[in-house]
Amino acid sequence: MPDHGETNQTNLTEASDAALIGLAATGDARALEVIYDRYSGVVFSFSLRLVGDRQLAEEVLQEVFFRAWQQGGNFSAQRGSLVTWLLSITHNLSIDEIRKRNRRPQKADSDEPELLLSGLQDQGQSVEDEVWIGSLRGTIGEALRELPASQREAIEMAYFQGLTQREIAEALGEPLGTIKTRMRLGLLKLREALGESGVGPS
């Protein structure tokens, strides 16, 4: 388009996440595109890991960014980073899909996503992450490996398999309170390992 000058484009690609989502909230699709270029990889990877199906992960991907487009005005940089917000939406949509699927009869050879730890190593695909994401990926992998297995299991069953605390307790034959404690302690240790800096570009 004639009014999309190079200068404007350079400014956008260097703009902060918060500035971009603010622009997208006002209807600037170019800002949304820059956001998409930054984070579509992590959103898609996460959703694919959760739902285990590329087509479904693509649909979640599209829905996540469409919601960012429509509801970006609800994002508050004071409460967290943009990528946290996007990943939270991704998780909600993906878990919803998992639970729908789990309500249907399962095939015997259902290809449930494997547990997180077995898939931790980067598959070496040519995805250009933001630098801080690559760094964080290493940190979180290390932190996860250092968690007690029972805590890691509880977190994985909830966060990656979409099970509720009650379902996890039933599946493991443990008291509900035990599962809650494992989740709480596991999150605490992860948070300590990551530091309070949180997720997002510094």
């Binding site: 998409y36 579509s40 990889g41 992590v42 959103v43 898609f44 990877s45 996460f46 694919l48 890991r49 590329r54 992960a57 693509e58 991907l61 599209q62 960014f65 469409f66 967290g80 980073s81 990528v83 946290t84 990943l87 939270s88 991704t90 998780h91 997180l116 898939g119 931790l120 190593q121 980067d122 598959q123 695909q125 040519s126 995805v127 992450d129 994401i133 964080l136 990926r137 940190t139 979180i140 992998g141 996860l144 977190i155 966060y159 999150l187 992860l190 948070r191 990551l194 309070e196 949180g198 997720v199 997002g200």
Partner: peptide, 26 residues
Amino acid sequence: RDLRTVGALALSVPAAAPPFDAKIAL
């Protein structure tokens, strides 16, 4: 605070590249 922590979990998964069609569709 805890959303930031689980957001890091989300970033720990193996990286996969979304298909170009997905961007067009969006």
